[in-house]
Structures are given as structure tokens and as C-alpha cells.
Amino acid sequence: MTIAGLVRAEEFTPPGPGDFELPALFGGVDKPMLQLVLAALLVVGFFWVASRRGELVPGKLQFAGEQAYTFVRNGIARDIIGSRDFMMFVPYLVALFFFILVNNFFGLVPLIQFPSFSRASFAYGLAALTWVLYNGVGIWRHGLFGYLKHQSVPGGVSGPILALIIPLEFISNILVRPFTLALRLFANMFAGHLLLILFTLGGEYLLLTSDVAFYKPVGVVAFLLAIAISFLELLVQFLQAYVFTLLTAMYVSGAIAEEH
């Protein structure tokens, strides 16, 4: 695939999905792959350095690390999963939240400026992890048959209609969930990045390449809008990391819940 979105002298080529196909840097490894590794190193490094001393009266760094950890531990894990079981899942949820958060912020970090999860396959990978986790703990808690019953037989339905509902509930809870989970993260990152490319490339074209004098102020407006959208993206990037972690906790909570 050729690199779309390159502004030629005469015509403006609008950016498209082709702009997300980055060329391999070496041996089949491209930039988003390196970003995943970098994000993992950053998250592990931050929490390692922040917790290394473990002083009773925390310094600034330790305080920041504890605040970050507590936000996920109490704000997501304990509130959703409940105080009996939540500690088991805190390591995964904390790692998941900060890994997604850092990868999303890469969309705005200068020189990186590419949200890793705008590549759908990465989002599907994360959703697969969550899928294995919530189904695994559900089977561990209820047994295989008990878990399938737990997820497929809704409370409050009885009679012959139940036979029609069971396959529907099974598909909705076991098969569709990982896709909606991954799609939400991927689509938000993809759309946000596309919007930013569109406004910056369009602004550049209007300001520098176009011959019509009237277009130049419009190009300035496009650049201003790109900056405004960057702030909106900052919010979306945080929210999507939060939502992904929150839903993971909800699925786990639903899988290990007692009978309804």
C-alpha cells in the first residue's frame, strides 16, 4: 500500500486508514510494536522506582506511585468487584490501566504521536487477555457447567421463552463481549488520531500549498482546531483506559457473582 495522505503540490489527498499502516523499521518490527514495549518498560519502571524504598513517610515519587495504585485499587477494583475478592485482580487491573493509559498518551507525545491501540489487533490482544481472565475465574468459581449456566440463564425469565433466550445470552456474554470491548478502545483511538491528521494536514495544505488567498486564514483556523482537538483527545485517551479497566472489573465481578 502506498503512503496516503502525502500532500502533493496540486491536490489534497485526505488522510485515511492507509496512514495507520506504518512501514517496518527493521525485520518486520514497526513503530507501534516498539511503543508497546516502551510503554511496558515505562509502567514497570515507574512503579518499581516509586516503590523501591517503601518509606513510611513517602517522598514525592512514592506518593505519586501510591496515589496511582490506590486510584485503580479502590476506585475500580474494590468498588466493582467487592471487598471480598478484589485483591486478587488488583495487579492485573493496575497494569492494564497504566499500560493502556501510557499507550494512549503516546498519541500526543511529541515525536511519537501515534496511539498504539489505533491498530485494532493490539486492542483485540488486550481484550483476549480480559476474556481469558473473566471466563477463567468464572469457571474456577462455579465449575464449567455451573459457569455456563451462570452466564447463559438470566434470572427473571421462565417458561418456553427461556429456551430461546439461552443461546442469545450465551453469545452476548461470551462471544460478543471481547469484540465490543476491543472495538471501543480501537475505534476511539483510531478516530481521534484520524481527526488530528486531518486537521493538521488540511491546515498545512490550506496555508502553504493552496493558491487561493482566502484559504490561508482558514488554514490557521484548522490549526487552532487541531490544538483544541488535542485537548479533547487527552480526555478521551484517559477515559478509554479507564473504561477498558472498569469493564474488565465488571466482567470479572459478573463472572464470580453468586446466583442472581
Binding site: 468498588d79 466493582i80 468487584i81 467487592g82 471487598s83 471480598r84 442469545l168 445470552e169 453469545i171 452476548s172 456474554n173 462471544l175 460478543v176 463481549r177 465490543t180 471501543r184 469493564l247 465488571m250 466482567y251 465481578s253 459478573g254 457473582a257 453468586e258
Partner: peptide
Amino acid sequence: FTEPPASRSQDPWVAFGRLVA
């Protein structure tokens, strides 16, 4: 301590999943 969490909220997208399914 074994009560289900007070906010037994659910993924709103479950409605979407059920319709699609």
C-alpha cells in the same frame, strides 16, 4: 463482607451485545 458490591452496575453495551446476538 460477602455482600455483592453496592453498585451492581453493568456494562451498558450489554444491550448492544444482546441485540446483535
